[in-house]
Design a protein around this nucleic acid. Structure first.
Lengths: 341, 341
DNA sequence: TTGAAAGCGGTACCAC
DNA sequence: GTGGTACCGCTTTCAA
């Protein structure tokens, strides 16, 4: 079933079929209808490879994300991935998944060289990300999820982790908390300059300084057991700590249990705030007061930006910096009165 | 940068370059090295569209899943999706995402007609799924996640929800529980014959009957609030209920809060068991005793089956029915002594 | 308003 | 062991 077959059955040339379907050249109403009839009858769809080869466009967007070696994907990443396909479909594009190491451009290079996609969306970026230099160099359309050091030269969509952590700290400070800990993503990610972790940390330091508060920073692996251990360290390092802010959603269950194990009741004795998906925030009891990451919206905006860029590669780069409000749930409350010591 | 350019620079014909790279015809060591050198120098990769057009293979697997209209993807679905890309990469394949309505073959038809993929993986199947008839009819390679009514004629990977729910019921019965509720996926999914929900329900009924126990069944929407409401209904319908089994991971937080709100302490007064991702089970406190769904393994096995099918379309269909053990965590305990009434 | 034909960049058959 | 070339299915220029 190809365009030649359609042409034959409609008694026209192949080019006429092509034009009738694309509308790039006027076709008489009569022939157009005849062609459409044959097409419907046979359920004809142009072969994507042939079309891509001929006009240089694949109609496919690449989604580049790190392989889940050893660890799971976070709910945030995954929810985002899901939303992307829907958004792309709305623009008549498909999404191709591509796993690529956080620190490597090789698989990215392959993706571009093979011309499988028209543009890419980069998840999990580092502040200084070599893949971005590579893409700029190659003049290949892309959008990053996260705001990198090259933000002024690129298109990106990001959650403002600095502002969100600041909002959490302010909320806790307003409640009277003076000693607050930050539970961050894993050490490994911080070391490589992982954007959300770095900006979150930055926001924490600034906000704490601005308030004249004492803060400690704890990288934490993405699992419940690490969260549990992390809380124990926090309370050992400074038993007077009365609140924490977490960027690590996977550790959340462990954080709660660690607190319970230390005899701290949330939110009476200890407050917890964070940045998380609403879905995730509602799993724990009491529900987590958190800045709700709008994963689906991030996906939609990223696709919109990329598609715009494909339509006009010379156009200006676009940005969306989202700052969702902190949803007050049950995990924060007034700071407890200090124990007399 | 194309194969002609490589041929020119290496002073050989295009076909020789092609054969040197594919190894489908012997090439003298000298020319092979010369070609490889030019290829490396220029970072040449064959154009995927051209290759697909010429040999009829795209090197791409399609992942068909329902659009997340209104509801989020479940952690299970998403974790699974993530694992697929890695598994496919191991077989040198890419994964193309495609959202397709649960009850429609139209987008599937387009996917096949455009020849974008060599085979598809179908998530979220119904026991009687029209897409399967369509794929069989079209003689198109596919693997389903979930065991349908056509299981004997298809390749599939599934978690044995019947056995898992049975294991949960047996575990609870052994602990002395006599009145057990099943919290299922949403009504809507049950109505359309959603596989895991249907088989889970079937397992529940059989296991309860086999033990001579009293059970009630509760469809529940995929969110915390619905879980909360669901527990209230369970306890209103039969206050003597002392345990529940849940197939609904998204409702879990709400289930716990509903129990707490009714004055039931888990696991002292009430036991909860379920089927969930380990990650998810560890979010709640006490951690959920659950059959751990091995999402990543499901993804890997599905890709293996599909790739095998592509290599030998006439070969036998393969199956993997997984029955992960129930991990005892903290949410189940001996049935409380009945209150005198 | 339509048709013929030259590509797009590979693969693989047929010769030598 | 290597080269020439038809062909995969579509788009688009050129000509009528």
């Amino acid at each position: 079933m190809n365009i030649g077959e359609i042409a034959r059955r409609a008694n026209v040339s192949r080019s006429t079929v092509s034009y009738a379907l694309s509308g790039k050249r006027p076709v008489s109403e009569a022939t157009r209808r005849k062609i459409q009839q044959v097409v419907d009858e046979l359920g004809y769809q142009p072969n994507a490879s042939a079309r891509a080869l001929a006009n240089g466009r694949t109609g496919t967007l690449g989604l580049v994300f790190p392989p889940a070696v050893g660890h799971h994907y976070t709910a945030m990443q995954l929810d985002f991935m899901g939303s992307l396909a829907d958004a792309a479909a709305a623009h008549e594009h498909d999404v191709l998944l591509s796993t690529a190491g956080l620190d490597s451009v090789t698989s990215l290079r392959r993706l571009l060289a093979e011309r499988r996609v028209d543009g890419v969306i980069l998840m999990e970026v580092r502040l200084a990300d070599e893949r971005i230099e590579y893409l700029l160099e190659a003049d290949f359309p892309f959008v990053t999820i996260g705001r990198t050091d090259a933000a002024d030269r690129t298109s990106w969509v990001a959650v403002d982790h600095r502002a969100l952590v600041t909002a959490c700290v302010d909320h806790l400070a307003d409640l009277g908390h003076r000693r607050i800990a930050l539970v961050n993503r894993p050490e490994r990610l911080l070391r490589v300059g992982y954007e959300s972790a770095q900006r979150g940390l930055d926001g924490f330091r600034r906000a704490m300084a601005a308030r004249g508060l004492t803060g400690r920073h704890y990288p934490c692996d993405d699992d419940a057991a690490s969260g549990h251990a992390c809380v124990e360290r926090i309370l050992a390092d400074d038993p007077a700590t009365t609140a924490l802010v977490t960027l690590n959603e996977a550790a959340l269950g462990g954080l709660y249990r660690g607190l319970a194990g230390a005899g701290r009741t949330v939110p009476r004795d200890f407050s917890v705030a964070g940045v998380a998906l609403p879905h995730w925030a509602q799993m724990v009891t009491p529900q987590l007061t958190a800045a709700d990451v709008p994963a689906a919206e991030l996906g939609r905006l990223a696709v919109d930006l990329l598609v715009a860029r494909l339509a006009d590669p010379a156009g200006p780069s676009g940005h969306h910096l989202l700052t969702p409000p902190v949803s007050l749930r049950g995990s924060t409350g007034p700071a407890p009165l200090p124990l007399s010591s």
